[in-house]
Computed example of a mutant assay.
Amino acid sequence: MYLPSFQLKGKTALVTGAGRGIGRALAIGLAEAGADVVLLSRTQSDLDAVAAEIAEATGRKAYAIAADAGTREGVTEAVDRAVREAGRLDILVNNAGMNIRTPALEVTDEEWDAIVQTNLKSAFLMSQTVGRHMKEHGGGRIVNVASVAGHMALRTGVVYGSTKAALIQMTKILALEWAKYGILVNAIGPWYFPTPLTEKLLADESFVAEVTGRTPLKRVGRLEELVGPVVFLSSDAASYVTGQTLYVDGGMTIYGF
């Protein structure tokens, strides 16, 4: 009697950074759960490939929209187009992200601005713009892709860690403000997964050994292992869950030293 609550049939999800890596995996997973999907990133060719894959594998509708989610103009235009083409938006997954692993004493203004704009400002602009639409239509689900780096001090860079910590706090505040509108806001906090952002790092055997040594499950994650948590938080199965960050980390954040 409870399993149907995990289904997303009749829903439309918008996923940022959907052209590759985690965003691609999440978009496909949401479609497999029954949702139509709006794919958003800067590279049209990547989005077209994912849209074709979704249509062939799931039969769900996929809308590929190239846009810059780091600017208000880009977000407004993209969301307006998404609503025109898809009809409505029930789920938003803020996945777009980047990192520049520069030591704190060497971080430039340009690096700071670029990471903050992509990891934090874009998530807020998307949440604000889609949130207005959700408010008018009786509610929705927002899932932010944060990181264990927002919870623990790691050698991922001061700017990246700061943006992810801010994203976790933003998740709580939006959940508090928007609960009255039926908008549930949660986050996931991944550890290391194979993506274009981590490809070079995970090619280093000594680095992988360090990562797995800090992980109770003794391995890095698989992209499909992020799909279930996001589908759950997007579904009616999580109708009493808001303001939370679900760490998908092989137990890393519970590890004691």
Results as ranks from 00 to 15, higher is better:
Val159Cys: 06
Gly150Met: 11
Ala238Cys: 02
Asp48Phe: 09
Val231Asn: 07
Tyr63Cys: 11
Ala64Asn: 05
Tyr181Lys: 06
Gly74Trp: 06
Leu217Lys: 03
Arg84Thr: 06
Ala18Trp: 14
Gly182Glu: 12
Val130Pro: 13
Val116Gln: 07
Gly250Ile: 01
Leu223Pro: 01
Leu197Met: 15
Ile91Trp: 03
Leu202Ile: 01
Glu224Asp: 12
Thr253Ser: 10
Pro229His: 00
Ile91Lys: 03
Leu233Phe: 07
Glu73Leu: 08
Glu77Arg: 12
Asp113Lys: 12
Gly150Leu: 11
Gly150Val: 10
Asn95Tyr: 00
Ala67Trp: 05
His151Asn: 11
Ala203Gln: 13
Glu136Thr: 10
Ala35Ile: 07
Leu223Phe: 00
Thr253Asp: 06
Gly59Asn: 13
Val241Phe: 05
Gly213Asn: 11
Val231Cys: 07
Glu106Asn: 09
Lys121Ser: 06
Ser45Met: 13
Ile115Asp: 00
Phe207Met: 07
Phe124Arg: 06
Ala18Phe: 13
Asn186Gly: 10
Ile168Leu: 01
Ser122His: 02
Ala52Gln: 14
Leu197Gln: 07
Ala64Ser: 15
Met252Asp: 00
Asp90Arg: 09
Thr212Ser: 03
Ala67Gln: 04
Ala25Asn: 09
Leu14Cys: 10
Ala69Trp: 01
Gly23Thr: 02
Ala18Val: 08
Gly17Val: 00
Thr118Ser: 10
His151Cys: 11
Gly34His: 13
Ile115Ser: 01
Ser127His: 10
Ala123Ile: 01
Ala31Arg: 15
Arg141Val: 07
Ala52Lys: 15
